[in-house]
Design a protein around this nucleic acid. Structure first.
Length: 542
RNA sequence: UGGGAGGUCGUCUAACGGUAGGACGGCGGACUCUGGAUCCGCUGGUGGAGGUUCGAGUCCUCCCCUCCCAGCCA
């Protein structure tokens, strides 16, 4: 595990482990980070084609290039807070989950929750980052009523992970395509409390339950070009943290919060335009809309020769009016007076610890998507299955029982999904097991039952459980494949409905469905549809 | 915008996954006929794109539209 101790112990972790297993990297400072960012910028911009498009952007002048970067805060689902043992549960009564440490009382000392390191390493690895084997915490000083200590414990010049990337498949309806977005850095920090404003606005109250909750901040490279790409990036990040189990990723509870930086520059210009930060994004949809609004606003100012009115500021997305408004102008470069946190020791990782985590990582969304794609599934199927970890696992488990990928996908996406939607259940709640689904598919394949009967059985399995074989036996559902028997029923259907026969022979061939339905009714759905229709056609056309 | 409900002839309303019917309207006709009466006939529809199925209005995904309620929090 990671090795963290108090400075007061007067022990340096280096002394405890041979230096050969320690690796130092990524010791670059903030200013150099920015330079690196800019040089990578031009590469990624030209690499990505403009396959995704937003409607709102279609009417704008085409000679401007938007540049979007995203900062995401993810609340970690640890049992306790980052530096004390208070639990955190969203929605609990204000100030019921606090202690001297997270209240910032004088003399209270933080103790790092090692899960925070574990989760940070997990996410860092999943984002294909380079890890800093020797990093540290820093204090970021600022005053705000929700920050009782007067500073936030964060990481400044040595983030725990940096220089990674995230792969995203854009859904077909948004233009499709595969994109890779750069990750600048991932660092650990703590959340602040929450201010509760009274209705009349006369005063505000502070809830410190959230203070000290561990956060990972993920900063992307400015690789996105429109709202859709940004929203897809954020959605993929949400999938990732859920797959990893490091956060519930719930945007409405604030477990996943995104701020976006938008700038626009004339195409061909190498210098970035003035960057505007947009906050207050409650959903992926609003994120997409906010960005497209902001791009349009800036392009318009540019094309009207009013580029100087784009100033470095923080704007707020207004759901009601669907636009951004100025929240605060950048007050110079806020001087946070970062300095190393003296109450916490360095964070030293060693290779075995990292390897242990690396080996325990689950298969990630991107891996699943590529694997499903190789099986021959279309992108719509791939995304449906891989977007939800539980569905993907159910799918994989069914495949493990030997079922055909496309058939399993079809069953899950149509009838099983329909049942879950109706009953408001997740795939973990249904009584159907992957084993029985595989059995069901096999029974149809070997001809024991028809697909139609398969559907009937499926709904019983979903609601009641049980096994395919039991149900077939109990309800006598083996399909009828005897041509003679089917022929008899077809003859009867034809004899009973002379009027329809006449219509059919007069050209209303759609009535084939009517006759098929009659035979199905007579056979209680057990007639083999293929055979039935073949015989039916022969009879009707003779 | 968010939450909820919904979308089948021009309108209203049906169709265990098995022939898209009915009513009103409109058009045409009949009734020995001045008609706001009656009868007959005709007209005309599953919002869009994919998917599942032997077969889809009905099941799945996305989009569009309508109605109701609510509406701006660091």
């Amino acid at each position: 595990m990671s090795y963290t101790i108090f400075r007061t112990f007067q022990l340096h972790p280096f002394l405890l482990y041979p230096t050969s297993i320690l690796k130092l990297q990524n010791r670059f400072f903030h200013s150099t980070t920015i330079k690196a960012t800019q040089s990578q910028q031009t590469q990624t911009q030209t690499k990505h084609s403009t396959s995704t498009q937003s409607k709102k952007l279609n009417n704008l002048p085409k000679d401007y290039e938007p540049i979007i970067g995203i900062e995401t805060h993810v609340q970690l689902s640890t049992n306790t807070k980052a530096f004390c043992n208070c639990p955190y549960n969203y929605g609990s009564f204000p100030n019921t989950s606090i202690c001297p440490v997270c209240m910032g009382l004088p003399g209270a000392l933080p103790v790092l929750n090692s899960k925070v390191i574990e989760f940070a390493v997990k996410l860092g690895l999943a984002l294909n980052c380079e890890l800093a084997f020797d990093s540290k915490f820093d204090r970021k000083q600022y005053f705000y009523p929700d920050l009782p200590k007067g500073y936030q414990i964060s990481q400044f010049d040595v983030p725990i992970a940096s220089s990674g990337f995230l792969d995203v498949d854009i859904p077909l309806e948004y233009g499709g395509g595969h994109k890779r977005f750069g990750i600048t850095r991932v660092h650990m920090e703590e959340d602040a409390g929450k201010l509760l404003h009274t209705e009349n606005g006369n005063y505000s109250q502070v809830d410190l339950n959230r203070a000290g909750v561990p956060l990972l901040e993920i900063v992307s490279e400015p690789d996105m070009r429109n709202g859709i790409e940004a929203a897809e990036y954020a959605a993929e990040l949400q999938r990732l943290v859920r797959y990893l189990g490091v956060s519930n990723g719930n945007m409405q509870e604030g477990s996943l919060r995104c701020d976006v930086n938008v700038s626009v520059r004339p195409i061909g210009q190498s210098k970035f335009g003035t960057k505007v930060e947009v906050k207050n994004l409650n959903s992926f949809a609003s994120m997409s809309r906010a960005i497209d609004f902001e791009i349009a606003r800036q392009v318009q100012l540019h094309s009207q020769g009013q580029a100087d009115q784009i100033v470095q500021e923080t704007r707020s997305w207004e759901e009601g009016s669907q636009r951004t408004i100025t929240m605060r102008k950048k007050e110079g470069l806020a001087d946070y007076r970062y300095f190393p946190e003296p109450d916490l020791p360095s964070v030293i990782l060693y290779q075995e610890y990292v390897d242990g985590i690396k080996n325990s990582l689950p298969e990630l969304p991107e891996g699943k998507r590529r694997r499903y794609e190789k099986m021959g599934l279309g992108m719509q199927d791939v995304l449906f299955l891989a977007n939800d970890k539980n569905i993907a696992e159910f799918f994989d488990a069914t495949l493990a029982k030997g079922a055909d990928a496309k058939l399993v996908a079809n069953w899950i996406m149509s009838d099983i999904a329909g049942f879950m939607k109706n009953e408001k259940l997740t795939i973990n709640d249904i009584k159907l097991t992957p084993e029985e689904l595989a059995e069901l598919i096999a029974s149809i394949k070997d001809g024991t039952i028809s697909g139609k009967i398969g559907k009937e059985i499926l709904f019983e399995l979903l609601a009641e459980g049980g096994s395919v074989k039991e149900i077939i036996e109990k309800k006598d559902l083996v399909q009828i494949t005897d041509p003679v028997e089917i022929e008899k029923m077809v003859d009867k259907a034809i004899a009973d409905n002379p009027k329809q026969v006449e219509q059919y022979r007069g050209g209303k061939t759609k009535l084939q469905g009517f006759f098929a339905g009659q035979v199905m009714k007579a056979s209680k759905g057990k007639a083999n549809p293929g055979l039935l229709n073949k015989i039916l056609l022969e009879k009707l056309n003779s």
